[in-house]
Design a protein around this nucleic acid. Sequence first.
DNA 1: GCGTGGCTACCCCCTAAGAGGTAGCCAGAT
DNA 2: ATCTGGCTACCTCTTAGGGGGTAGCCACGC
Lengths: 213, 213
Amino acid sequence: MSETRILIVDDHPLFRRGVRQLVEMDPGMTIAGEASNGVESVEAAGQLDLDLILMDLNMANVDGLEALRQMRSNGVDTRIVMLTVSDADDDVVAALRAGADGYLLKDMEPEDLLARIKEAAEGKLVISPQLAAILAGIVSGGRAAPADALSSLTSRELDILRALARGMSNKMIARRLDITEGTVKVHVKNLLKKLGLRSRVEAAVWAVNHEVS
Amino acid sequence: MSETRILIVDDHPLFRRGVRQLVEMDPGMTIAGEASNGVESVEAAGQLDLDLILMDLNMANVDGLEALRQMRSNGVDTRIVMLTVSDADDDVVAALRAGADGYLLKDMEPEDLLARIKEAAEGKLVISPQLAAILAGIVSGGRAAPADALSSLTSRELDILRALARGMSNKMIARRLDITEGTVKVHVKNLLKKLGLRSRVEAAVWAVNHEVS
DNA sequence: GCGTGGCTACCCCCTAAGAGGTAGCCAGAT
DNA sequence: ATCTGGCTACCTCTTAGGGGGTAGCCACGC
C-alpha cells in the first residue's frame, strides 16, 4: 500500500508548516494538500484522494465542525481527526457526534501527536488523554450536563424544563405561564446552554431521565 | 345577566337548524350566529360577542380542529365545545389539547345535549359519557397512545423512535441509519400519527417513559 | 396475476425552534 | 448609590420540524 495521504486544514500557515514537517518525518505519510478554511477543505476533500484529514476547529469562513458535517453529508468517508486548541466539552462532543474519527489537542508533544496521527490513519479512534474526564462524564451521565447542572437553573428555567419534559411547545408553555413565546424562547435558550444540550428534545429526555417533574 | 349567545359551526344546514331549535327551547340561550365552515367560524368569532361556540369537526375549508386552534391563537377565550360524530381517540385528544372546553357526540339525546350545552355555557367541562374509557386510557398512560400503540409501529419506526428518545435530530438519525433526512421525516410523521402525538418532543418523552430503548 | 404494507425518496409549504443581540424593570447585595 | 442577576420583551436570521402529496421498489399473501 502506498503512502498515507493527508490533508491539513488550519487557518494558520505556520502551524500547517509545522504539521507538514512533523508528518513528513514519517516515510509512510505525506501531506497531499492544505486548506486554510472550511470551504477550501470541503472542496479539497471532494477532489483529492485522501486517507486522513487533520481539521482545525476555529476558522473563519466555515469552521471545522461545520466543514466536518458538510463532508459527512457529502458522503466523504475519509478519516477525519480534529486537531485544535479547544478542550471545551461542547466542541469535543459535537465533533465526535458529527462523525469525527478523533480529537487531538494542539498542545500535545510532537512525537506523541505523530504517533496518534499514524494510529488514526490505521483506523483507530484517537483522543487526547486530557479529554478522558470529559468523555467519562458524558458516558456516565448518558448525556452531557454535570450532575449539579440542575441546581444552576433559575426557578423560571426549571418551570420551563418541567414543561419541556411534558412535551409542550414554546407557545403552549407561554400560555400556561402567561408570558410571551419570545420569553419562553429566551429561557429555553439559556437552560440549554447551562445543561450543555443542543435541543429541546435532548432537554426533555434529560429531564425525564433525571426525574425533573 | 343577559342571554347566552351561541355560535353554531357545522357544514350541514339541517343540523344547524335542529340545534338552533333545540337551543332556543331554552329561554336563557340564543343562537347569535351560524357558520358553515372553519373560515367563517373564525371570522364570526372575531366579530360577534359570543359566550359559547358549538363546533363540528368535519368540514371542508378549514376543519373544526384547525378553526379551534386559530381562534385560540387569535386570543379568543370564548368557551368552545366540539359537537361531532367522531369518537376517535385522536380527535378527542387533539380537541381537548387544542383548548376545547368540551366534546359532545351528535348522537346524544336532545334533552341531554341541551343540558350539556347549558353546563358548558356555565363554565363546566362537558364530555359525552361514551368517551370516558378513552379519556381514562389517556390519563392512565400519562400521555396519549394506547398501550398497544407500540406494537403497531414497524421496525423502522421503532428504530427512529429509539433515536428520538436519545434526542437525535432528523439529520443525525439519517446519518446513523444511512437513509436520507427526508425518509426520516416520513417515519417520524408516521409514528407520530400512530402514537397520537404531536411532536418529536412528545414522542421522545413518551419513549423514555415507556422504556423504549 | 394483483393488491398490500413497508421502506425509500422526493415535492411544496408553512410553522417551530434556536442563536444572536438590545433593553427595561426590579430586588438584593455591596 | 451602584451593580448584579433574574425575568421580561423585543429584534433579526437561519435551520429544523412536520403536514400534505406522489411514487418506485420489494416481499408477502391471495
